[in-house]
Design a protein around this nucleic acid. Structure first.
Lengths: 181, 181
DNA sequence: GTCCACATGTAACTGGTTACATGATTGG
DNA sequence: CCAATCATGTAACCAGTTACATGTGGAC
C-alpha cells in the first residue's frame, strides 16, 4: 500500500500530470520507490475514484491531452494517517546474496564479473547522490523540511557506500581464494 | 525468478520436505529471501514438473504424509546457470524513507514512535546475526564454502548496522528540531 | 473418541511487470 | 504530410500474500 502514498506525496510537492509524475519518479522519489507509467496511471485513476485527488480544470481530457491532478483534503489526511501509522519493516530480499549462497554449493564460475559490474553501478549511484547532496544541501542552516529530505538522501548515500565496500570486500575474498590462500 | 533458485540451493544443501524447507526459510536462507509455506509448495510442484527435482522414494504421498525432495542434475545445472548470469540490481524500495519524505510535507506527527520501534527491531536482528557469526564462523581458517557463507552473513550484519546508525541519527535530528534548533 | 499439532495443499486477491494500443502535437 | 515524440491508457501475466481446506498421527 505504498505507491498511492508515494503519489500523494509527489502531488503535494507539486501538482502534475501522469507523465510528469513518471519523470519525477525516475528522479528523486523513484530513488527509494520506483514506479512505471502504467502503475502511475492506474493508481491515479483509483485515487481519483476514492476522492483523494482531482483533475485540474482543463476539461478536454481525451487521449493525448495532458491531465493534471491535485490532492484534496481527504488525500492529505490519508497521507498523514499512513505516515504516522506503525508498519512492520519488510524482510530484505537480495538476489546477489542469494546467488553467493548458491555459489557456495554449485561453484563460483562466472559470478565475479557480475560482482564487478554491480560494484561499478553502485559507485555510479553513490556519485549521483553525492552530487545531489552538494547541489541541494549546502552545509548552512536549513528548514526542517530540508533536513528531513537530507536525512532521506543520506540513507541512500550510506546504503550505496555499504554496497561498494561490501562488493569490494567480496571481490578481494574471491581473489585470495583463487590464490589458494 | 529467484524463489525457485533459493529452493534449489536449500535442497542441495540438504534434501527436505516442504515443511522442513519452510522452517529453514524462517532461519538462514529466509534472512535474505523469505517465503511462506504456500509459496514453497507451489514452487516445489513446478520444479518437479520441470524435472529439476524429484520426490524421494516413500511413495505414499497422501496429504499429511511427509514428502521429501532432492535436486536432479538438470536442477543443479539450472542453478549454476542462474548464479553466473548477469542480473540487474533491483532499485530499492523502502517504506520508512518514503514516510519520512511524506512527513516533510504533511508533518512529523507520530512517526517518531515507529522510528524508535524500528531501531529496536534492527538492533535485535543485528544481535541475532552477531550470535550466528560467533557460533558458526570462528576466526580460524575455513573452507571456501564457509568463507562465502560468512561473506553473506557479513552483508546482513553491515546492513543492520547501517540501519541502527541511520535511525539513531534520524531520531537525534528530530529531537534537535523539537528543541527549535 | 476427541482435540491438537503436523503436513500438504487450494483459491482468491494484490501489486508489479511487460507488451501493446491509440490519439495529439511538433519538426522537417 | 510524414515521422517522431508526447501523453494516456488496456490487457495479460507473474510473484507474493492472505485465508481457508483437508488429511494424519499422537496425547489425553
Amino acid at each position: 500500500m505504498s505507491l498511492p502514498h508515494a503519489i500523494l506525496t509527489a502531488l503535494l510537492e507539486k501538482p502534475s500530470s501522469g507523465l510528469e509524475l513518471t519523470r519525477r519518479f525516475d528522479k528523486s522519489i523513484g530513488y527509494f520507490w520506483s514506479a512505471t507509467h502504467q502503475q502511475i496511471y492506474r493508481e491515479l485513476g483509483k485515487l481519483e475514484a476514492e476522492g483523494y485527488i482531482r483533475a485540474l480544470p482543463p476539461e478536454l481530457h481525451a487521449r493525448g491531452q495532458k491531465k493534471s491532478y491535485e490532492v484534496l483534503p481527504a488525500g492529505r489526511a490519508e497521507l498523514a494517517r499512513w505516515t504516522a501509522a506503525a508498519q512492520e519493516p519488510k524482510p530484505m530480499r537480495d538476489t546477489m546474496l542469494l546467488r553467493l549462497r548458491a555459489a557456495a554449493v554449485v561453484g563460483t564460475e562466472g559470478i565475479q564479473a557480475d560482482l564487478r559490474r554491480h560494484l561499478d553501478l553502485h559507485r555510479g549511484q553513490l556519485a549521483e547522490y553525492e552530487q545531489i547532496q552538494a547541489r541541494d544541501f549546502p552545509p548552512e542552516r536549513s528548514t526542517p523540511e530540508d533536513r528531513l529530505r537530507h536525512l532521506v538522501l543520506r540513507a541512500g548515500i550510506d546504503l550505496e557506500t555499504f554496497w561498494t565496500q561490501w562488493l569490494t570486500h567480496a571481490l578481494a575474498e574471491f581473489e585470495s581464494m583463487e590464490k589458494g590462500d
